[in-house]
Amino acid sequence: MKPGEVAVISGFTEEETSAKLLEMGFLPGSAVRYNYKAPAGDPICVSVSGYDLTLRIREASTITVII
């Protein structure tokens, strides 16, 4: 995904990380918007369920999305 894009979460590839992601509101079926990335390229800032969250690219890469 590129900054500014919106996608729908379809699932997770890693169970361990998914538990935390789910708690933070990354729910399958909800929309996620990629806002911007940190100056060094990692982590990134996204909007999901109506608020802004930051996460590392490694964590974000365990989320599968449909654009």
Binding site: E16, T17, K20, L53, T54, L55
Partner: peptide
């Protein structure tokens, strides 16, 4: 252990 960096802005 995995390190997490998921936090609210």
């Amino acid at each position: 252990e995995r390190s997490f960096f998921i936090m609210e802005m």
